[in-house]
Design a binder for these strands. Structure first.
Lengths: 156, 156
DNA sequence: TTATGTTAGTTAGGCAACTAACTATAAAAG
DNA sequence: CTTTTATAGTTAGTTGCCTAACTAACATAA
């Protein structure tokens, strides 16, 4: 299948807008979390607070759709700050279980409050209800691209 | 203004989807351009082909909404590959003018062809027309966030 | 029981973005 | 005309992502 030139150009424009939105929002989030936490570190703490800890690195990497080396680095930074503990699995000598510490829960709560404030500021005077109407279309696009990636990786 | 908890959660989900879409598409683009070009390098060549060369580093950084050090690094990689030439400005001893070389134009053409192929593969069987209907909403969001950033930086 | 293959995680190296702090030049203010 | 301020660009260091290549441990089958 070949795209028309016009469709191709519109698609590029849409993906460019998405890249810029991502850049601006993640930069803002990174700023308000600094210097205690990086954004990926907050995201990982958030996952543990909401869905429980005790997961392995590989399962976390899959949940966040990042590579294992990325997850290794993020866990390493959190462990260095004492916000998580890495325990070895009794049943599988290869696996490691990730546990959040009390300090980790405190850091997460602080980050969460700062992000809530940021969200209010950033979307002050913006019609969020109208924006949310487009959420489904983006979710479908994400699912399609994810499926394509799995095909490429032979995971389909 | 405070967001409702529900709105906040939906907004986070939407921004998360945007981050993942950006991640998947830019990773795919990076793969097909490698190892000749990085994605930021292609983007810069594309800008010079379409809008003409001879711009300064600072103006390019502003056009791409990236920091000056990022642009310095991107230009440095392109210059090392002989795809651009950096000329000093006769009128302003601080400024540098960026020129694309013939090798740069060739590299751009090759990258463009590869990206077109990728686009066809990635969106094979996807309803692009339906997707494009949401482009305006994303453009508005981008503009809003960009305006907010300018307020913060005192550029309003 | 050994050989084969898979899975968990790390290391190494590269791209791309950021901020903070710097040099050099130009422009404005005194 | 000198001093101050602003602008152009670089350097240094961090975050965060990637792929490729590796070790260690587990699972299965000859």
């Amino acid at each position: 299948m070949t795209l028309s030139a016009d469709q191709g150009a519109r698609l590029v424009a849409l993906l460019t807008d998405i890249a810029i939105i991502n850049q601006l929002t993640s930069a803002a989030a990174t700023r308000v979390l600094a210097p205690q936490l990086g954004l990926s570190e907050y995201s990982l703490l958030n996952h543990m607070v909401r869905r429980g800890d005790g997961e392995t690195l590989t399962r976390l990497a899959r949940a966040f759709q990042v590579s294992k080396p990325s997850m290794t680095a993020t866990i390493g930074r959190l462990a260095a700050k004492g916000l998580v503990r890495v325990e070895s699995d009794a049943d599988d000598g290869r696996a490691k279980r990730l546990r959040i510490t009390d300090a980790g829960r405190n850091a997460h709560a602080l980050g969460r409050a700062r992000l809530a404030t940021l969200q209010s500021e950033l979307f002050d005077g913006y019609d969020i209800a109208a924006l949310i109407e487009h959420a489904d279309a983006l979710a479908r696009l994400r699912e399609h691209l994810d499926a394509q990636r799995n095909v490429r990786d032979g995971l389909a």
